[in-house]
């Protein structure tokens, strides 16, 4: 345990800059992916033809291995291969691909009586979406978001294979110097970060859906 603290203290400048990149890479793609998936999922839930196309597309995108995306994106975006932008864009693609399906399913699962009731009291389509469909779908969307956040965090370190600086460097550093301390430290960082996201999304869902507390035993 003291070895971990000593290592952290001796290398804090480097670890801090890696941690900042890692935090950005875990947060921004999650928000961007959600922002893109919401309208896409709404479209897919409304029109059958967009549903099939969007779900097939997101399924195919999700199948592409992360390391491959990290390599191909610099060609498509004109970025440098060591740029963290490639990693961010790749993770955004995964979050989008995962959430399109979840959001489509969540919006489709909203009971039709509820929608009819909302229309009957004079909601427009947009009001109905905002005031009824999204709140009711929130728990399911949040569950998808938790999966996306956690798998995102564990994917970030893959970028170390091609040398993009973030906390995954602790692993490659441990390998090249054959020391356990940075490897264990890196594993702790990533697992703790994943659990923080998981807990934060869970807590946010509870705040956003207060009516579910009454139903909870």
């Amino acid at each position: 345990m003291t070895a971990l603290w000593d290592y952290l203290r001796d290398n804090h400048a480097e670890i801090q800059s890696w941690a900042v990149t890692t935090l950005w890479l875990s947060l921004l793609p999650l928000l961007a992916g959600l922002a893109l998936a919401l309208p896409a999922g709404w479209l897919a839930a409304r029109h059958a033809w967009t549903r099939d196309t969007l779900l097939a597309l997101s399924g195919a995108l999700y199948t592409i291995p992360s390391l491959v995306l990290f390599l191909v994106l610099p060609e498509l975006l004109g970025t440098r291969i060591l740029s963290a932008v490639n990693v961010g864009v790749a993770l955004t693609i995964y979050v989008f691909a995962l959430l399109v399906r979840t959001i489509t399913d969540a919006l489709t699962a909203v009971p039709s009586e509820l929608l009819a009731a909302a229309t009957a009291i004079g909601h427009s389509n947009l009001q109905r979406l905002w005031a009824v469909q999204l709140p009711v779908a929130t728990p399911v969307i949040a569950a998808g978001l938790r999966v996306a956040a956690v798998s995102n965090v564990s994917l970030i370190s893959v970028a170390s294979i091609i040398g993009v600086s973030q906390l995954g460097q602790l692993f490659t550093l441990g390998e090249s110097t054959e020391t356990l301390t940075p490897i264990v430290l890196g594993l702790i960082f990533f697992v703790v970060l994943a659990f923080l996201y998981d807990g934060a999304i869970l807590a946010l869902t509870r705040v956003l859906t207060p009516w579910r507390k009454a139903a909870r035993p």
Binding site: V153, F171, A194
Partner: peptide
């Protein structure tokens, strides 16, 4: 299974290689 999803594959791999 849930906890394992949070463990980065590269970290686990390098841990096992070194150990």
């Amino acid at each position: 299974a849930n906890a394992l999803r949070a463990v980065p594959a590269l970290g686990l791999l390098i841990l096992l290689i070194v150990e």
